[in-house]
Design a binder for these strands. Structure first.
Lengths: 208, 208
DNA sequence: CAGCCTCCTTACCAGATGGTAGAGAGTAGG
DNA sequence: CCTACTCTCTACCATCTGGTAAGGAGGCTG
């Protein structure tokens, strides 16, 4: 018992620290001992809550994916409220994702770590993202069929957008490594590029 | 003595395997034992040639950086031979880098691994890239001063281009993870985006 | 042959890692 | 008061890690 504050939220604190560590040091580069030491607790406390390191990663991924889904759901609901066109809806989603990423840069770190081919978290992330992707894809294909969207390869477009977001993570880190200070501008630029790319690909009213 | 083929090139074989493993499994995720086992040799043979795991990574990075520099030097020489304008020269360099990346996708894996914040190889890569970047930056700033290039933040532009290349690495992996087959098209697309971006930023003759 | 050098090996180790077993402390309910 | 449950701890372990020490086999040179 730490006797300090933080009574029942050890679990959450561990998740926070794990998210940060997995995102920066990577899964292999994160040791439970170090993680615990950073929190002033013992490694076994972590294992009590999460059973194994692997499951801890899963829990971190689950929580983050939950936040992402919630954010997207919110953006979708809002853009549905106003009778927006397809393009406005797409833009709202993209902006929401970037907002989430800028609010919590650690999320990007995890995303990048987990996008690595042999990452233990990759399958878990996939299981969360796949339904989202499939849903988005179906929607896009319906809109295309209805002539409200320009015809294009929906899956490839979605994956490209996804990679762009992951790429933002690396860009932020590259910039920080190079000693460039506030990283807002390039991120906003990437967002602009992505939006332009999507618009060009999807919006029937956009110039080719 | 393996008694098989491969006499004096054990060193190169180790470098090849290490490049692949560092690029996919990461530095921490690569064990010397596994690396050696994959080559049918003993871990100590690796250590004989490279002294330590860290130095092995350095050697891998050095070799890759050497290839990159050579490729860029070649592209530069060629574009100097013809009396190309600035923009043609920039384009030649970009195309050369992408060509190298497509020829040897493993290079991208390493680049991504080593672009991670706390990566042991990060400093080594920086020491290779910094002179290149500084040189490019000086050149660009000269051209800007002479009015042959549009004025912009040279460093930010270079870092952005760099991130784009690293981003290509993640994109390829994302696509492969999603089961999308030949990854040529999206890569070419990224190259096109980068070239367009650079042209817009640099070429005085380009449309805004 | 002797000596040296290169290359790869076996033998071994200290430290870190993820994980197990079980006890202690606090709290709630009967 | 006793029991049961939750949470954290100490103690311990098997395994894997990068790394050291030393030896053997082959080739070159004196």
């Amino acid at each position: 018992m730490a006797a300090t504050e933080a009574r029942g939220n050890t679990r959450e604190l561990v998740l926070d620290a794990a998210l940060a560590s997995f995102g920066t040091a990577g899964y292999d580069g994160t040791s439970l001992d170090d993680l615990a030491a950073g929190l002033g607790i013992r490694k076994q406390t972590i294992l009590y809550h999460f059973v194994s390191k692997r499951r801890l990663l899963d829990a971190v991924v689950d929580r983050c994916a939950g936040e992402l889904v919630a954010a997207l759901e919110r953006a979708l609901a809002q853009s549905r409220a106003g009778d927006s066109g397809d393009w406005e809806r797409v833009e709202a989603m993209v902006r929401e994702v970037f907002r989430l990423a800028l609010d919590q840069p650690v999320l990007l770190g995890l995303l990048r770590e987990v996008s690595r081919p042999n990452s233990p978290g990759a399958v878990r992330v996939r299981s969360h993202l796949e339904p989202l992707m499939a849903r988005a894809r179906r929607w896009m294909e319906d809109e295309m069929a209805a002539g409200r969207m320009r015809r294009t390869d929906a899956q490839l477009l979605l994956l490209s957008a996804y990679s762009t977001v992951v790429g933002v993570a690396t860009e932020i880190e590259v910039l920080r490594a190079a000693g460039v200070g506030p990283t807002l501008r390039p991120v906003v630029q990437r967002r602009g590029e992505l939006l332009r790319f999507l618009r060009r690909s999807l919006d029937p009213a956009a110039r080719t």
